[in-house]
Amino acid sequence: MSGESRHGRLGPNGRPVRPFVMPSTFSGKLRVWRYIIFRRMVQLGVLLLFFGTVNWGWSIAERPVLSGDLSGSEVLGLIPLADPFAVLQIFFTRHVLQPQVLIGAGIILAVYAFLGGRTWCAWMCPVNMVTDLAAWVRRRLGVRDAFSLGRHIRYTVLALALVLSALTGVAAFEWISPISMFHRELIFGIGLGWTAVLGVFLFDLFIIRNGWCGHLCPLGAFYAQVGRVAQVRVSFDKQTCTHCGECAKLCPEPQVLNLHKATEAGMVASGECTNCGRCITICPEDSLRFDWRWHIKAQGQSKSEDNQVQPSERRAA
């Protein structure tokens, strides 16, 4: 498909393959970094709201701004929110919960089913900041994987979390989760939870690339299933894509950037996509961008209709 020309390698669409070049201007760099800046602002901002509410008594009209932590919380003393995976584990311990937490889990489930399940991972989970740092250092040092580990193992961990919850009578993952330890101790006071987070960092840095978030984490596995129906997706334009592969080099879940599937669906359809936006900003051809699933589908249909119409028009002509 790809051929040689005096410009270098050509993509399947006949355009020259260009590598990603970091802009030299600061504003250009900011544009490339825009999603990572937004993501850090969201992640740290939410933690700050939690921290301010419990430690500095932040309130609006005498209502606490955001009380609790990422396992369960209440916005302005009105809207309950809860971690649906934690609630699922408690459900497996065969305990009946109050409606408040069930409503909260339902709200969060609906939000992430809409935004993309693993949008949680890239935009909210505090461990993401640690594993992104590990991945960055790893790229700098050029560390290779210590051994190979299938990415489907997280679904085994997910199943194990539910089975152990049923057998031991406690929410199995919540009791050892480095994610909960991390945000809880950042909000309510530092204990030894950082050792678990350090373990995740070292595992990701030296043992396996994206080892925790991409291979083991059962919460990510849970949200990957929620993300199957996600409405916010990265759309893919096969017309402009030169198959340069820059996106897959940086993507923490490169299997979701399968070109055949992406071409077929017109988007990155896999629930394992975290909507982190890295591929969008690194793409030298601007072939990838955030879009709505229904919009992408509608476009795809109209295009295929065009394709069907064109030959008949030709025949008519």
Partner: peptide
């Protein structure tokens, strides 16, 4: 004790309150 261990979601809203 056993019910509490199962039901507590570790959100800290009691601590806030």
């Amino acid at each position: 004790e056993s019910d509490f261990n199962a039901k507590c979601i570790k959100c800290g809203q009691c601590v806030d309150a």
